[in-house]
Design a protein around this nucleic acid. Structure first.
Lengths: 216, 216
DNA sequence: AAGCTTCTTGACTGGATGGTCAAACTTGAT
DNA sequence: ATCAAGTTTGACCATCCAGTCAAGAAGCTT
């Protein structure tokens, strides 16, 4: 399992930021970016190291100089993604104004679909396959966070500050509606015409939708 | 490209229902069912003929006796899926009551997520990859249908029978919200607890949502 | 500039996988 | 029962693909 490692990791177990050379940092980033492109459209099995190498402008052995394996590249991408995946929901503040907080959460998620559609598709691919690589993340981190925020939403509803709705389905609806614009962008683009920005009008629509849904 | 075909297709170009023996019909169905299971969770590239054969309880060469290639199995699945994919939207009746029609469409889509989650994931996989195999279907059939129904929705809005909303985003929202329960079932299951039915409460929530969204 | 380290790659390997084939087995009509 | 057609499969092949390796090129340090 442990091949001689050309990139010596620091003594400290899983060093968060092993001191890498300029070239190391640059090329690892190039590879991750290329891999994100390829993995997000073809899935893990559908992607080949040759594709990633071509996309990165590097040779295949060179990829494997910077990462131990195809799997290691994919794991690194997922790890980086999950690190920030929870942030928008985490920012939902129990002390804020209910409508404004929920609306802001929706807007943050929509912004992620706009700014990071490949990351969204990478995640979608993972869930479609049954979430084998992110199961623990979902069962632990995500679930705890959702349970926590669901309590906040329920409290708001019980206090009559927003309409009575199932807080879980409310959260799922925000995920579904916002991620759809990233994950199904190809379909939307083909229906609306290729010159059209798939996200055009989405924010106004979703604001309208949640305004009406949440009004007490 | 054209290998000697052990299953003679009828003279008439693409016979819709070539007369097959009892065994043929049975085994083709078994294979398609197994393939749907495998393709929908692993994607086209991620699925192997050996997996499908094992799932079907047949040998790999036997699979290839009934279908020309892995691709042919996949194509057949997609063709059958697309044939019925449009039906729920097609049934939306311009002559009906706006709220009731839209609500019924939402319910039909939700029912499809309940009854055919694998088909939904097969489709989602396809779109995630950029819709290479269904591009013409989307650009032609689906687009025309959506444009048509969008006109209906717009007319209803202009007549003041439902609230003013972008008809395209309204349709997309129904797709997103209903398909999410099939495509992201793994995630929902892990968050709500494994004993829980992911779709529990979904219909009530969506009815509530669209009631409020559409009220003039 | 020398010498050491880091980086890069052409050529290769082993295993997985889609697909073939000829021989064997079943089925159904007579 | 017999025979032809339809069905099944073990053994095999060719290609693809993740990963290896040794040798060479480029950077750094002095």
């Amino acid at each position: 399992m442990s091949a001689p490692d050309p990139i010596p990791a620091e003594k400290s177990g899983s060093a968060k930021t092993p001191p890498r050379s300029r070239i190391q940092r640059r090329n690892r980033q190039i590879i991750l970016d290329a891999a994100l492109e390829v993995f997000s459209t073809h899935g893990f099995r559908g992607a080949t190291l040759d594709q990633i190498a071509a996309q990165a402008g590097l040779s295949k052995p060179n990829l494997l100089y910077y990462f131990d394996s195809k799997d290691a590249i994919h794991r690194e991408l997922l790890t980086r993604l999950l690190d920030t995946w929870l942030d928008p929901l985490r920012m939902l503040d129990a002390g804020g104004t209910p409508q404004a907080e929920i609306m802001a959460y929706m807007r943050r998620k929509l912004q992620m679909s706009r700014d990071f559609p490949r990351e969204s598709r990478l995640f979608a691919n993972e869930i479609l396959q049954g979430a084998p690589r992110v199961e623990q993340f979902i069962r632990n981190d995500l679930r705890v966070l959702v349970d926590d925020k669901a309590r906040v939403l329920r409290a708001w509803a019980d206090a009559g500050r927003i309409a009575q709705t199932d807080p879980y389905h409310l959260i799922f609806s925000i995920w579904a509606l916002t991620q759809h614009y990233a994950d199904f962008a190809a379909q939307i683009g083909m229906i609306r015409g290729d010159g059209h920005d798939p996200l055009d009008g989405a924010e106004a629509f979703l604001e309208h939708l949640y305004t009406r849904l949440l009004a007490p």
